[in-house]
Design a protein around this nucleic acid. Structure first.
Lengths: 345, 345
DNA sequence: CTGAAAGCGCTTACAG
DNA sequence: CTGAAAGCGCTTACAG
């Protein structure tokens, strides 16, 4: 492997000049520039990134904008763990991560957190663009400042993000439907249970539902699909009553909850000994893990929450440190979890 | 972050002495050694690995011992791709990989390849310990030479491998059984189809079968399980005749092939228009991908072949370059593939 | 037992 | 437009 010194010798120039050519810095005559470029090509020279990192002796700080995490059952607990792992692995490059948290159900808090982020200067931004309008305006600011950013978990079309890392929601719904079609029989019925609080995540949740319904439509299966929305209240009795009424339709055998809130239904099923009901939901958090182990939940679709954070962070570091340009869309595997494979993540 | 120079100043010694302490090299008086260690502790000093890598300017070469790859349909095609990717990502550390291939069905060729490997000197070894006896003897040699090694795909108990990267075969069989139990109905029957050529991989294949049977036993499902071994011949007519006879039992509705050779059965099913038969197998190669897309194969259990190679290689590089000690058993996710999620790997 | 100096392959002022 | 030199934080002979 040739070094900058070798190239300089071959071109009869100093290493400073070679360095200028490599980084397209001004101050080199066209002629010598071309000569050097040719030699670089010819000898397939590649810069030694270790030496580069050492010489630059630069600190990199990326900002992370994700929802606040209250407990280890929260979805965002895992992406944060992933971010921390990636950050730790990159410590040798003097990297650091600064968090900006917001309330998942309050667009104002999102705005505030984003604005606070923009007050400082960062080398890159990792964010979950939960609120569409509030995001778009501020992305322009990032673009003007030439700060690269990556989306995780929520896809936002038409932005200049260098990458999106998350799941293909529609197809994950279709997979859920396929399994549901195996769990229930002809003439039985299935209900999609939406949780009002989730609606904030509109696109992902709605896409999952579309994928789910589309599967049954395409296959023309003789299974009726209902849809209900759980009341948005802390009053457990009101919720229980609502579920009770919903399930009074005896033909209902399958429940699909297109979010991690599947535990609400799992609790009900367990409490009222309705284990004959089949249940499919999303995301492995501590609560859901219990229900999948005792088979109250039949299948869980995993979003690779940890990996979203891990990969998002690594993608940004690789981009700003090593100039590695990622794929625009990194759709993660649609992982299916059951009692049998939940140990291996 | 403190540097070696800072520590040296604080301890009133030269950086050479600090370096000796850090690496436990001899030639430092007990007293100064202790003093330096204390200062290192106190200031939470961590060595700058970038500088270390640059100063060492060392080349690392790891040897890879895996079966020969004839076509892109071979299982080992993907691990090799993963090895290449990891190797490429590590190029900045002047790393390289040397391959030693053998015939999966010939223990002699395995011995020869391994012996050839041992003739040279490597910093680490990545291997698939296909042949038990032949492996064990040679691992002793590696241990004597203090060469770290990692197993992929095949688990070998009682060795001093720094890690095993692969699937938990028994549990993957149980998962296959769970899905099979959804695909077939009461009183129907299921057949496990072994392919003689696979027997070489004894442990993994047998463990999958055990897991599969164990699921039906534990659940006491009223589904009879048969087991057959396909004749080991190139004579397609003989094979077809054997399958024809096997399937003459009209109650058989489900087929489980505990290996990537599931395509043999898929071809038969397609040719003879037997799509009512449910089919579950292993591994996503080009052939199997076609059959999963047209739903001849219902479910495929993926071994993360690519990742086995990738992670195995990274694990070794991290160990020899960055002193990162891996987990002893890295069981990979038991990934379930269907038409709906096969796009996302 | 300990230190001073050269070197790994880059980047970055600075001088000309 | 170009070069010489110092420096990033380590390791490694070599000298004493």
């Amino acid at each position: 492997m040739k070094t900058i010194k070798d190239i300089a010798a071959l071109a009869n120039v100093s290493i400073g000049t070679v360095d200028r050519v490599i980084h397209n810095r001004p101050g080199v005559s066209k002629k010598t520039k071309e000569r050097i470029e040719e030699i670089i090509q010819e000898h397939n020279f590649q810069i030694n990134k270790t030496a580069r990192t050492l010489a630059l002796n630069k600190k990199y700080d990326i900002a992370v904008l994700i929802p606040a995490i209250e407990s280890s059952s929260d979805f965002w607990y895992l992406p944060k763990k992933g971010i921390e792992k990636a950050s730790k692995e990159n410590e040798i490059y003097k990297t650091s991560v600064s968090y900006f948290h917001f309330n998942l159900f309050d667009s104002n808090s999102f705005k505030e957190a984003f604005d606070k982020l923009l007050e400082n200067s960062f080398d890159a931004v990792l964010l979950a663009p939960v609120f569409l309008i509030e995001t778009q305006k501020r992305l322009i600011e990032l673009e003007q400042r030439k700060i690269p950013y990556v989306f995780i978990n929520i896809e936002l079309q038409g932005a200049s993000n260098i990458s999106y890392i998350g799941q293909h929601s529609f197809d994950s719904g279709a997979l859920a439907a396929k399994l549901m079609s195996l769990l229930v029989h002809r003439e039985e019925e299935v209900i999609i249970v939406k949780v009002r609080k989730d609606n904030i995540h509109h696109s992902a949740i709605e896409d999952r539902i579309s994928g789910f319904k589309s599967y049954f439509n395409t296959k023309a299966l003789p299974i009726k699909i209902h849809e209900v929305i759980l009341p948005n209240t802390k009053d457990q009795i009101a919720i229980d009553t609502f579920i009770y009424k919903t399930l009074s339709n005896q033909r209902i055998k399958g429940l699909f909850v297109p979010s991690s809130k599947v535990s609400i239904m799992a609790k009900y099923i367990e409490k009222h000994k309705l284990k004959h009901l089949k249940l499919i939901g999303y995301d492995l958090n501590e609560e859901n893990a219990v229900f999948i182990k005792n088979e109250t939940i039949d299948f869980l679709i995993d979003q690779n929450a940890f990996f979203q954070g891990y990969e998002g962070t690594k993608t940004l570091f690789n981009f700003i440190i090593n100039d590695i340009v990622p794929e625009k869309n990194k759709y993660l595997p649609i992982k299916l979890l059951t009692k049998e494979n939940i140990k291996y993540l």
